[in-house]
Nucleic acid binder design. Structure first.
Lengths: 211, 211
DNA sequence: AAAAAATTCTACTGATCAGTAAAAGGTGTT
DNA sequence: AACACCTTTTACTGATCAGTAGAATTTTTT
């Protein structure tokens, strides 16, 4: 167990530090946003120095991109682990509830709704984009299944449903309900799901268009 | 018509330039966001020099705040001009449609969902906050009226409805539908209203909680 | 046409921050 | 104990940008 053992041990420690950096970055991004997050912040929060940070990630953009990639991977994992007997609609509700809880615990929203430059940065990363597309395709399949089973509205285009669904993961109403509404986290999740799927109108659905 | 006439004429020109600056700032904020917007950008776009810009607004923060204040005033004006025979729900739909059209035409979303520092900056401005509170109260009244008339769900807390409603004005789904969905603007508005009020689920409303 | 006012231009200050260099200090291995 | 490797510290570069000063120029007023 000469060189091989030593290397793998070091690599392990390195990976652990890398995860700490990603965690710190997630916290900073969630609290200050990309523009106000400085590399000194991240290094300090992760307990390493800035030059060490650059041993892991070669730029601020790459660091933030890796964080978003990890988030997408977590979402894929969550989907893969869902009980197979769940109906399509139940899977969607379940995933959204998970995403909202992640945010409420100080994590990041899925959708980088924030700034145009952040979006541009992400779309420049093939690794990010390919994961986003894969997740998109998966969810598209679930939505279409839900429509066929009469769980989601068949009269609404799939992309309208999907983009609106994504938007709920970064819905600012969550913060407002926490700060001003003083609701416990579980109530916030419940209300957000309720609004998302059932809307705010009372009574039966209005006719399409103006009819 | 000595001094008085001259002064009022100058003031008029000054006001006109000020509006041009606010328009330019609105465009820049909508396209690049607060952090990436530079004062040189704004001055250039408004057709004046940076030092002249500082004759109007004494800081970048003040400039952005004034833009948001003007937006809130526009919303109040819109509400005040609505036909009095409209039902509460119709007024809410109408206002949201207006806000979405403003955004689709390159304007700003109401809700500064973007960055924490922008929100902090705005809450530091009494003029902004008092207007926001006034608008909030007005809309709260309309929502409660709509609930009493059976147009909005009485089982949903008013603040949940209100914050979700505000969030729709800055919903990123709008951009996605335009860029990826290739929908014309009017279809986007229609679909956004549809999702907002009627949700994405098919069929009758699920029972409250898990019952 | 001359005087008065504002505006523009050029150039600057000072602060912040991404990213880097190089010396100093640990840590574990042999 | 001596060595090799990594990390930290400190200090720096260079770029960007808010905000300003002062000279040059244009416009407006009289």
């Amino acid at each position: 167990m000469g060189i091989l053992g030593r290397l793998s041990f070091k690599d392990q420690a390195f990976k652990l530090r890398e995860q700490a950096v990603l965690d710190a970055t997630t916290r900073m991004l969630a609290s200050k946003g990309f523009d106000l997050m400085t590399m000194d912040d991240v290094a300090g929060d992760a307990g390493i120095s800035k030059p060490s940070l650059y041993k892991h990630f070669k730029s601020k953009d790459e660091l933030a991109t890796e964080v978003m990639i990890r988030l997408l991977d977590d979402a894929q994992d969550f989907l893969a682990r869902q009980a197979p007997e769940l109906s399509p609609l139940a899977r969607l509700r379940d995933l959204l509830a998970w995403a909202l809880r992640v945010r409420l615990e100080g994590g990041l929203p899925f959708l980088p709704s924030a700034s145009p430059q952040v979006r541009a940065m992400l779309t420049r990363s093939l690794r990010y984009v390919s994961r986003a597309i894969k997740l998109h395709k998966t969810l598209q399949g679930i939505v279409e299944q839900a429509k066929r089973q009469g769980e989601l509205r068949a009269d609404m285009p799939t992309d309208v449903i999907l983009y609106s669904y994504y938007s709920r993961t970064c819905d600012p109403a969550v913060e407002y309900l926490r700060v001003y509404g003083k609701y416990p986290d579980e109530d916030i999740v419940r209300h957000m799901l309720d609004v998302c799927f059932d809307g705010m109108s009372a009574g039966q659905r209005r006719a399409d268009g103006d009819a």
